[in-house]
Design a protein around this nucleic acid. Sequence first.
RNA 1: GGGCAGUUAGCUCAGCGGUAGAGCGUCUCCUUUACACGGAGAGGGUCGGGGGUUCGAUCCCCUCACUGCCCACCA
Length: 906
Amino acid sequence: MLDKTFDPKSVEPRLYAAWEASGAFKPSEDPNAEPFVIVIPPPNVTGSLHIGHALNNTLQDVLTRFHRMRGKAALWLPGTDHAGIATQMVVERQLAAAGNIGRRDLGREAFVDKVWEWKAESGGTITNQLRRLGASCDWSRERFTLDEGLSAAVRKVFVQLYKQNLLYRDKRLVNWDPQFQTAISDLEVEQKEVDGAYWHFAYPLADGVTYQHPIAFDDEGKAVEFETRDYIVVATTRPETMLGDTGVAVHPDDERYKGLVGKFVTLPIVGRRIPIVADDYADPTKGSGAVKITPAHDFNDFGVGKRAGLEAINILTPEAKLNDSVPAEYVGKDRFVARKEIVARAEEEGWLKEIEKTKHMVPHGDRSGVVIEPFLTDQWYVDAKTLAQPALKAVETGETVFEPRHWEKTYFEWLRNIEPWCVSRQLWWGHRIPAWFGPDGAIFVEETEEEAYAAARAQFGADVVLNRDEDVLDTWFSSALWPFSTLGWPEKTADVAKFYPTSTLVTGFDIIFFWVARMMMMGIHFMGEAPFKQVFINALVRDEKGAKMSKSKGNVMDPLILIDELGCDAVRFTMTAMSGQARDIKLSKQRIEGYRNFGTKLWNASRFAQMNECVRVEGFDPATVQQPINKWIRGETVKTVAEVTKALEAPAFDEAAGALYRFVWNVFCDWYLELAKPILNGEDEAAKAETRATAAWALDVILKLLHPVMPFITEELWDKTAEFGPARDTMLIKAEWPELPAEWIDAEAEAEIGWLVGTVGEIRSIRAEMNVPPSAKPGLSVVGAGAETKARLVRHRDLLLTLARLDSVSEAEAAPTGSVPIVMGEATGALAIADFIDLAAEKARLTKEIAGHVGEIEKTNKKLGNPDFLARAKEEVIEENRERLADAEAAKAKLEAALGRLAAVG
RNA sequence: GGGCAGUUAGCUCAGCGGUAGAGCGUCUCCUUUACACGGAGAGGGUCGGGGGUUCGAUCCCCUCACUGCCCACCA
């Protein structure tokens, strides 16, 4: 006998272990089995499972389990990411907290050892948490981005790209993170709006030059008044960069400054003589129209400087302090300190003309949170523009499809405007760049040191000494190879042959650029085929008010606590049901409780089945059932199988969950089991046996359909229900997905049960409205029944008596006095509840119902009276309206007759 | 400044060319031998505003408004 409730806490670990031990997580070895492959978006190896992971991985597991049951060679390949900056940051913070020396004092090797120690310590956390979620990953294939195989893939890709001129070293401005002291890519920069100002500085003209500057204008904007100036005004949001100015730019067509192009200013504080140049970049409508140029510390100025041949003077250290290229009193000062001091000095010396307070966008490092500095350094770049073209084409042609489709626009927009990808990082935790520097700026890019030396010796002789590049690669460089490096590439493994390209990638929109686009580029370039057939973009989980969950807001919901409290299946069902496509998921605990209740409902339905000896019968063929309710539930089951299968194929997770919920609760529990009770408690042994077998069969189908979403409770019931019936030949996880013939849908049974459900519903509704107490059992007289209705009344007498709580069901010539009418198709039922009738209330009820029909009739008449409608609408729509009209008119007539009788009595 | 998405019942969301739906919440009733994590019933919406296409629009087109997100080097 089943326990009173399902106990997830004891069941979950036991079943997970059993699944894993059985080898169920490994893909089928059947050579004919079509592969279904998902590579996991690798979480940070030292991270822990948050609610977003719970959603993302639930969906992946639902797909994996579904396709596994459908007989595919289903592989869900797990793994973790070394997450360069994030992990290095954590370990550095730990060192600091423990009072240890910093990483630079520790030295590279010792520090990296520390990180590996930390990985060993906490690296299992997230994978164990994935197990708690029920994730059916093939753990025997688990990978880590820094393990040997993946590192080999990284080296191979780097070298190959270099030799194909798709990867190169360049000196240009990069986004420099002064806290981590590394370059970062454009994507790792976040623009944040901050309070700032434009400081207007007057730079004195050199060599005694003066010019006439307009100060008043007429209505047409023509200058009418001028003053003589011996300075030019420039505006800046970053005063400290003036120490690196090497020019002032004005627009070539700007009348005000035309005469100044080619002249010089004397840079205040520094005293440097710098030229005034003409460049389109200078916008006459902005500020004074003249802009100071700091080529080494501004992306735009870098361009201007190049065009005008200006020197680029780097004035900052890697920590963003002023270096020794500036006057002595500023050397070593922090950039923000210097800013204040320079503004103060400008004011003092009289060349600060104006301070204009403003808000503007300032770049910040997404990890460090500090202001990013454009910084002139040598870095490695990937020619993303070239690699992007086939990646664009793959989505344009539909080789890879995004779901929902609209994300393709986002993908296109980014790839069409892509910039070179800076892939080198001045960090220690990551893949060391396979490049060696030789004499005279020679660079040797090879997979191994030996090869690099071999190449170098060929060029420089035997004594050549090489220095390996100190830098590591952007974490996303290795992540970009994930769909094939995890399968064993560059080795020619069986897995690569069988499982590439993968089927579906399930991930969040926030990493379409970081990850998806780059996997597309690398996958196509190295494998010749896009890495996925489908990219399913899942929503973002927010709190119940719609706010993003964050530790600082204190609104995070820990999925593991939710699993502890409400069970894994409830959490999974919630994730599946809420994974609609177009919006964020607002998660509330109440919602999860609702789905926990759903699990309990299923459990109790199984208990009921067990108590009533609804045991699976070997060789039972649903095609042979005779009882209308059994024919009906058979058809409903067929429809549900089709619906859920279609939804999971798409995938449309919410639709699958919705179909399952409705079928289990509103069809199977609310109606089928209730309808089955009189038979199960009755004397007709044949009907009883048939109903028992049908109920057990339907429950079995339910367990299968529900398994991908709620694996634990279904597997447990699969096991428990076998205790009383034939033994199972497999665990549910490996059971075959149901496929049922459409012929099992019986239109007649459907109509009959529909009639029954409708009649019971109407009687219940009247009873509630008239306040008929549950203990009262009125009689039902049916007037004007046709042959079919008569037969149904006989067949379902017991059901009507029980479900509608009636004393008797009989045919009659006329409705008894004081009865209340209900429409039963062509017939009229009369419910004998005279004792409970409030005449006024019943009149009101009838009047309201008649009014409803009248409205319907008018509306439909109008439609059918429209010649255009009759001429242009589809035939079945017209027919439907005719039927609707006839039904409404018949119902109206019956109710009016009853109202008339009531009026006669009253 | 550019782009994307959303606006449907008190709340959260489905529906997306032919009678407006679900869950939760609300109200009424019910300890009926699977389940009170339950059962029965009820109330509640001019589908953001305005145009247009159509026999017919919540659904398609245009436009406006508001909300959220992404991208962008503007001194």
